[in-house]
Amino acid sequence: MEALVAVMIAVLVGTGVYLVLRARTFPVILGITLLSYGVNLFVFISGRLAVNQPAIVGNGPASDPLPQALVLTAIVIGFAMTAFLVVLALRGQGETGTDHVDGKRDDGGEG
């Protein structure tokens, strides 16, 4: 199970990194979303893996609640950040007329 989770995190981070390096705002947003999945999972597993042990007292062994609490707020804030980025990209498109991250017009420059 550990190896599977590690592979999942690796793929999420890798695809996230690749997309973050693209030239247009939209793939960058996708990339950041993928990266935050990966990072959230990474923080979450710092409490180590456990199956059928929710962090609820009174039901036998409980998994580590602290990373879960951290990640819960991280998910919500991550969403807020994604939304902010999306709107920033829209505003950028409105101001510069292009969705290139460097604000370059479509006709000039390499991507």
Binding site: E2, A6, I9, A10, G14, L41, F42, S46, D64
Partner: peptide, 28 residues
């Protein structure tokens, strides 16, 4: 970019596996 993605993704994956397989003291 693919090389960067593979190195960083792989590196983080290795770190994740290393973390999951090592014992720890939780403050929880």
């Amino acid at each position: 970019d693919m090389v960067l993605a593979v190195v960083i993704g792989g590196g983080v994956g290795v770190m994740a596996f290393a973390m999951m397989t090592s014992d720890f003291q939780s403050i929880s």
